[in-house]
Simulated scan of single mutants.
Amino acid sequence: MAALSPDAILLTGRVAVVTGAARGIGRAIAEAFEAFGAQVAVCDRDKPRRDRANQGKGGALAMTLDVRDPVAVEVFARAVAERWGRVDVLVNNAGGTFHAPFADVSAKGERTLIEENFTQVTGMIRSMLPLMGAGASIINVTSSEAHQAAPGFAVYAAMKAALESLTRSLALELAPRGIRVNAIAPDALPTEGESGVRESMPAGEFDPVRVPPLGRLGDPGDAAGAAVFLAGDLARFVTGATVHVDGGIHAAGGWRRV
């Protein structure tokens, strides 16, 4: 393969699908992809934003849907196929959780966590794979909880760990097709969704003073930077990997700067 050029950072002409793109990390990734030249299709249960400068024929596509609904996902996939005929990048960002001791999580609550953080990802991948060819990239957004204990979030953490495992297995399965599969594990990137979960936690279970080893919190744009890297030619030989966007938390284990 030829040496990389400065244009390797660009995503010009690529079609990218981003789930959970109405806010937070998903929105930041969609906006970054657009800034680097991609055509972007986004979806969310809340009404996704659309780039006013990227409308019209070949422009952005936004749909309001629940990614847990396989029928809605198929409608979304058909819309992407009709607009562009292919998918070059798929970012599975949608997900969610709630705080509760494991013993207090009902069977219904457990199914919700499984569907919202794992099953919908496998469904989205199956729907988009027929549109993906050599050079395509799948990026799964997991969490630091996939790599450490998470009291009060046991099922959520287990599903994120399952998504990490799925990422590695699919990286090998899809390698013969030239499709790369990687993950981003964010932490310490405050978002609206995280704030809502944190506010529901009992006093004392979250210490807002503790910060990552880098000495500051990040923001959704930091995860977007990792996604741009994994989506494009700069990462053309990277697959089955997890990029920890967390200010050093994963590397530090249980240690954090106070």
Rank of each mutant, 00 (worst) to 15 (best):
Leu129Asn: 04
Gln39Ile: 10
Ala38Trp: 09
Ala2Lys: 14
Asn182Leu: 06
Thr119Gln: 00
Pro70Glu: 08
Ala16His: 06
Arg177Asp: 11
Arg45Tyr: 02
Ser127Lys: 12
Glu82Lys: 13
Pro212Ala: 01
Gly133Phe: 05
Gly240Thr: 10
Asn54Phe: 09
Thr19Met: 08
Asn93Glu: 05
Ser200Gly: 15
Thr191Tyr: 01
Glu31Leu: 13
Ala28Met: 08
Arg256Ala: 13
Ala231Phe: 05
Glu164Met: 11
Ala32Ser: 10
Arg236Gln: 08
Val209Met: 13
Ile9Thr: 12
Phe102Tyr: 13
Leu166Glu: 09
Arg168Met: 12
Thr242Leu: 06
Ser195Lys: 15
Ala252Asp: 01
Ala154His: 09
Ala223Gly: 01
Phe102Glu: 08
Phe237Leu: 14
Val181Ile: 04
Glu164Ser: 12
Gly58Ile: 05
Gly135Ala: 02
Gly253Thr: 03
Pro212Ser: 00
Ala38Phe: 10
Phe237Ile: 12
Phe229His: 01
Pro151Ala: 04
Phe102Gln: 10
Met1Ser: 15
Pro220Lys: 05
Thr239Phe: 08
Leu230Thr: 11
Val105His: 05
Ile139Lys: 07
Asp187Arg: 14
Asn117Tyr: 04
Thr167Lys: 01
Val197Asp: 00
Asp69Pro: 03
Val42Phe: 04
Ala183Asp: 06
Ala2Met: 13
Trp255Tyr: 14
Ile25Ser: 04
Leu131Lys: 07
Thr167Ile: 08
Leu172Ala: 13
Leu61Phe: 07
Glu194Val: 15
Met159Cys: 15
Thr142Glu: 01
Gly85Met: 11
Glu34Gln: 12
Arg257Glu: 10
Asn117Arg: 08
Glu34Lys: 09
Ala28Trp: 05
Met124Glu: 03
Gly232His: 10
Ala146Gly: 05
Met128Pro: 11
Val243Phe: 13
Gln148Thr: 14
Ala158Trp: 04
Arg68Lys: 05
Leu90Gly: 02
Gly193Met: 14
Ala171Arg: 06
Gly123Trp: 06
Leu11Thr: 10
Phe33Gln: 06
Glu173Cys: 09
Gly248Phe: 04
His244Glu: 04
Asp69Lys: 11
Val121Tyr: 04
Ala157Asn: 07
Met201Ile: 15
Val73Gly: 08
Leu11Val: 11
Arg50His: 07
Gly232Ala: 09
Phe229Pro: 03
Ala251Gln: 12
Val243Tyr: 12
Ala161Tyr: 04
Leu90Asp: 01
Leu189Arg: 02
Ser200Ile: 11
Phe76His: 01
Val40Gln: 00
Arg257Phe: 09
Ala94Gly: 04
Ala235Asn: 09
Glu34Asp: 11
Lys160Ala: 02
Ala103His: 12
Thr239Cys: 09
Pro186Glu: 05
Gln55Lys: 08
Pro176Asn: 07
Ala22Val: 00
Arg68Ile: 00
Gly85His: 09
Ala62Ile: 05
Phe153Pro: 07
Val197Ala: 00
Arg45Ser: 00
Ala185Lys: 08
Ile114Trp: 06
Val238Trp: 03
Ala252Trp: 00
Phe36Cys: 11
Lys57Trp: 01
Ala16Pro: 04
Val181Trp: 03
Ala21Gln: 03
Ala223Glu: 03
Asp222Ile: 10
Glu82Asn: 13
Ala38Pro: 07
Pro186Arg: 07
Ala107Pro: 03
Ala38His: 06
